[in-house]
Design a protein around this nucleic acid. Sequence first.
DNA 1: GTACTCACAGAACATTCGTTCGCCGTAGCT
DNA 2: AGCTACGGCGAACGAATGTTCTGTGAGTAC
Lengths: 195, 195
Amino acid sequence: MGNPNRDQEYLGKLQDYYGNYRSLPSYAVIGEMLGMASKSAVSALVKRLILAGYVEMTPDKRLAPTNRFFERELADFNVPAGLPAAANDAMSESLTLDEYLIAKPSSTIMVRVRGDSMMEAGIYDGDIAIVERRPAANIGDIVVAIVDNEYTLKELAKDKQGFVLLPHNAAYSPIRPEESLEIYGVMVGLVRKYR
Amino acid sequence: MGNPNRDQEYLGKLQDYYGNYRSLPSYAVIGEMLGMASKSAVSALVKRLILAGYVEMTPDKRLAPTNRFFERELADFNVPAGLPAAANDAMSESLTLDEYLIAKPSSTIMVRVRGDSMMEAGIYDGDIAIVERRPAANIGDIVVAIVDNEYTLKELAKDKQGFVLLPHNAAYSPIRPEESLEIYGVMVGLVRKYR
DNA sequence: GTACTCACAGAACATTCGTTCGCCGTAGCT
DNA sequence: AGCTACGGCGAACGAATGTTCTGTGAGTAC
C-alpha cells in the first residue's frame, strides 16, 4: 500500500473529531486515534498540516483549525461535471454557519427584518440580519441606526449636507436625521429561511 | 460593585476568543484574559459554565464548547424603545443558525451561488444557498436542477407545455428542459456575508 | 454586631503536555 | 547493488497543564 497522501486520511479523522467536539485533542490522543504509537510522529504530522495550511497555532500555542480546515464543506456551482456532492457527502457539520457569520459573538445580535425598505438590496421582510454592535460605521455599510427612538436598517451614506440613511426601495425616500444619528450596529450577515 | 451575572461577561469573552481561534485557551490564559490572577478561580468558573451547559469536557478531558455556547438571541425590530439586547424578553428566542437553517444535516449541502440570474429574488452572486438534497420539488420552490450537465438555481414552475425553470432577472429567459429535468435539491435557506 | 456565602488569590502537587534526538524500516531513485 | 528521503518508533526532558487546599475580602441575611 503506497501512501502518497496518507495525511489526507489523517486530516479527515481530525475533521471528524473536530466535528464532534469542536476542539482538537492532544498529540497523545491524536496518535491513538490515527494508530500512531509515538507522539513524535504526531508532531511531524502536525508540522506538515501547518505547512499545508490546515491548522495553526494560536498565540497561546494551542492547536487550532484554519479556514482551509473546513474547506470541503463548500461546493462551488460551476464545477462543470464534478458533482458538488462528490467530495463531501460525508458532510459532517464542521463549519458551522455560526462560526462563518459571527466573528465577535459577544457583540453580535440577530435581528428579524421588518418591512420591504431594503428589498432592492436583497434584504426581505422576515430575513434575519446579523448585526455587530458598534458605535461607528463606514459609508456604504448597511447599518442599524436609531432615529427618533426607532430602529431602522438602512445604508449609511453621506452627501454635502451630512449623513443620510438610504433605503433600497424606490418607494421610500432617504432619511436625513434631524438632530442626531446613532449607529446601533453594522450588518455583517444575512440569513433567510424558505418554507 | 454588585455582580449578579459577571459570568455572562466572562462567557462573552470566551465566545470572542473562540470566534477568533476556533479553540479554547488554557486556564492560565483564560485567567489572564478575564483579569483573574489564579487558575483556581478559572477552575471554579469553568465548573459553573459546565453546569450552565455552555461548555463541556471531551472524553479526553479537554474543554470544548457545547451547542448552547453558540446560541444567539433573536430580537425583533419594531420593539419601539426596548433594547434588542434585553436579556430575557419573551419575544426573543435563542438559537444557533445551524439549527435554524439545517433540518437534515446529512442531506443538506451548501452551495455558493454564481451569477445574477436570481437577483430579483434576493439571491445574489456570492451568497450561499442551503440546499436540501431531494429528487422532487413543488411548484414554486427554488431548486438546484441539472440541465444539460450543468447545475442551475432557478424557480420550478409549470405551464401547459410542462416544467419550466424560471430565473428571477428580467435579463434572462426561462429554461425549458428539452429532454429531462433532474432535481438535485431544494433551496431551504440563504446565507450572505458582508465585508 | 455575627454568621454565612461566594468569587477569587496564592501556592503546592502529580499529571500531562509537546519537543527533541537517535534509530529503524520501507519506497524510490540511480 | 547502494543511497537518500521520509514516516514512524521509543525514550527522555523541561515546561505547562489542571486539581486541590487554605486564606481573604466583599456582600448579604439575621
